[in-house]
């Protein structure tokens, strides 16, 4: 076999294998097996099987549910699937000072275990940032700069 022919065969073979691998990952059900976190509804649906195992739980902090005691660094809040008021909620308790961005309504991922008393106890609380990057609505930068920027982009909300 000529080296050129061999090289082209290598290329075609590699492309086929690479394409098949990518298609398998993109369209196969590999996503069902690779779960980074459970949503509260998915965890509650597991029933008793969810108790005790170290898992990650992800969702949004329910507004009005945060109770923070800085003296004892005890934090308690509820995590819901979505912002919908009817979404399934799970109570989370942590003994940690939360990251500064922690607030009501923000997305969180907590690592810990769900107990039979329906409380998720965590020692690793992570806050995620959305893909929105907004300037502060006031303060933070001089007013004249704010004015020139908002004039530059009238679509800005």
């Amino acid at each position: 076999m000529k080296p050129e022919t061999r090289n082209r065969l290598i290329a075609v073979g590699a492309i086929l294998v690479a394409g098949a691998a990518l298609a398998w990952i993109a369209f196969g059900n590999i996503g069902d097996n690779l779960v980074y976190y459970w949503k509260p509804s998915e965890m509650v649906a597991q029933g008793e099987k969810a108790y005790g195992a170290t898992v990650r739980l992800g969702g949004v902090v329910v507004p009005g549910s945060v109770v923070w005691n800085p003296e004892h660094t005890s934090l308690s809040f509820q995590v819901a699937d979505t912002h919908a008021p009817t979404a399934v909620r799970v109570t989370v308790k942590s003994e940690q000072t939360p990251p500064q961005m922690f607030r009501e309504g923000i997305g969180v991922v907590v690592e810990g275990s769900f107990q039979s008393d329906q409380v998720f106890r965590t020692n690793r609380l992570m806050v995620n940032h959305s893909n929105e990057y907004r300037a502060p609505t006031d303060g933070g930068m001089p007013d004249d700069v704010m004015k020139s920027l908002s004039q530059a982009d009238p679509q800005k909300t």
Binding site: Q100, M101, F102, R103, P136, T137, D138, G139, G140, D143
Partner: peptide
């Protein structure tokens, strides 16, 4: 509004509202 709500910046005014 013409006058900023938080003259020192929102971070200073509410350090507890989830702003770094």
């Amino acid at each position: 509004s013409p006058a900023p709500l938080h003259p020192q910046g929102i971070e200073k005014a509410m350090p507890s509202m989830g702003v770094i």
